[in-house]
Simulated scan of single mutants.
Amino acid sequence: MNRRTVYYATRSPFKEEELEIIANDTFDNGGTSYRIGDLVDFRVSATPTEEPLEIDLEAMVRHKARSAYKKILAPCIVEHAGLILDKNADAGFPGGLTQPMWDHLQPQGFLDRIGCGGERATARAVVGFCDGKQTYTFVGEAVGTLTKAPTDGRGFYWDVVFCPDEDPSGKTYAQIADERDGLRRKLLISQSTKAIKKFAAFLFNHNGNLFDLS
């Protein structure tokens, strides 16, 4: 298996630590599991990217990936995540607007103004890959419930209000990540890891039309 170098354009202070854990996870291909880190050498780059205001996360990420490539000039990926409220699922809201609303309103204000405390929601992450010729997107999702008030814990973004169904404790991502070995447990079920696994499977199976990433 040929290991490829892919730049990960992000300004998140947590991403490098998370990628080290994700690299040890596996993706499935035809019933066989492969370690992500044996296929992809992620190189974190603090490259600023353009993030247009779009409800559609995939449309936002395609633009974001192309803007990253223009600066890095090498195969690269970007990521953006948002919440999709069950009651607004048809519109995909707030989707790509989650972060600017969250940043402006702050956690409790976000819950109060949107009226989503206690509501069911889907956490959706989209990874975008640009090789200089084409842009591809990969979607990962986790289903859960939003709390009525923010919790303590490793408070990145809406981790303090989202309780994933896949963890039986009923705790938020932030609370799970704050426990012993919690970050690894959180990443095993997170929408971000699911999207990266799809990207890894794509890279593994691609027939050679991509730029040489070695």
Rank of each mutant, 00 (worst) to 15 (best):
A149T: 12
S67N: 08
I72W: 08
A89F: 03
F93S: 12
H80A: 00
L187F: 03
H206Y: 11
L19A: 06
T151W: 03
A23G: 12
G155N: 11
A201G: 00
T49E: 10
Q99E: 14
T145W: 01
A23P: 09
M60A: 12
R35Y: 08
P150N: 07
L213N: 09
F110V: 12
R62A: 06
R3K: 13
N207C: 10
N29T: 06
D28E: 13
D165K: 03
G115V: 15
T10K: 03
A68F: 14
S45D: 13
D41P: 02
R66W: 09
R11K: 09
Q108W: 03
L213M: 11
T172D: 02
R120P: 01
P107E: 02
G92W: 08
R154W: 04
D25R: 07
D165F: 04
K64N: 05
F162T: 02
A177M: 04
T137K: 07
P164D: 07
V61E: 03
L203W: 05
F129P: 02
F93W: 13
A125P: 01
N2H: 11
G117D: 13
P164K: 02
Q134F: 13
C76L: 08
V139L: 14
R154K: 12
N2L: 12
R35I: 14
V127N: 01
D181G: 05
I77Q: 04
V160Y: 01
E141P: 08
E119S: 10
F211P: 04
R113W: 14
A142V: 04
